[in-house]
Simulated scan of single mutants.
Amino acid sequence: MTMSTKEMNPPELVSHIVQASVMDWQPTSFDGIEMKLLYSDDRGRSTILFKLAPGAVVPLHEHTALEQTYVLEGSLEDEDGACTAGNYVWRPGGNRHIAHAPNGAVILSIFLKPNKFDAGNRFFTEE
Rank of each mutant, 00 (worst) to 15 (best):
P54Y: 06
H97G: 04
L66H: 07
E67H: 12
M35Q: 13
E34G: 07
I107N: 07
V22A: 14
H100D: 14
A53N: 06
T64Y: 06
N103E: 15
F124C: 10
F124K: 04
T69D: 01
R96S: 08
S109H: 06
A119L: 12
D78E: 02
G81Q: 08
T47W: 15
T64S: 11
F30P: 01
G55W: 06
S15C: 12
D80T: 02
E7F: 00
N115E: 11
I110M: 14
K113Q: 13
E126I: 02
G55D: 12
G32W: 00
V14Q: 15
G55Y: 06
D118R: 07
R91M: 05
S75D: 10
T2E: 15
M23A: 13
S109G: 10
L13Q: 09
A82G: 03
V14H: 14
A85W: 13
L52A: 13
Q19F: 14
D118P: 00
T2W: 11
L108R: 08
H16M: 14
V14S: 14
R122L: 13
R122V: 07
L112A: 08
F111L: 14
V18I: 15
L49W: 11
L76G: 00
A20T: 13
V71M: 05
T69F: 02
A119T: 13
L49I: 08
Y39K: 05
G94V: 10
P92S: 09
Q26W: 00
N103P: 05
P10I: 04
S4T: 11
R91L: 03
G86R: 10
L52C: 12
D118A: 06
G55E: 11
M23T: 08
G44K: 00
V71F: 10
K36F: 09
L72A: 08
F124Q: 11
G74K: 01
L108Y: 13
M3C: 09
I107H: 07
V71K: 03
P59Q: 04
P27G: 00
H63L: 01
N103G: 13
S4M: 05
N95I: 13
Q68E: 13
T64H: 06
V57S: 08
P10K: 07
M35C: 13
C83M: 02
P27N: 01
E62M: 09
T28I: 08
T28P: 01
E67M: 12
L37N: 08
V89E: 00
G94W: 14
P10Q: 09
G93E: 10
V89R: 01
K113L: 12
Y70N: 05
G120E: 05
I110P: 02
L60N: 03
E62W: 02
V18D: 11
S15Y: 04
K51L: 02
A105V: 05
S75Q: 12
I17L: 14
S75F: 10
A85L: 09
A65P: 00
L38P: 11
T47L: 15
V58P: 01
V71E: 04
T28D: 05
P11E: 02
N95T: 15
T2R: 15
Q26Y: 00
F111C: 09
V71C: 02
E34N: 12
I110K: 14
I107M: 09
M8L: 14
N115L: 12
F124R: 05
T5G: 15
H61F: 02
T5A: 15
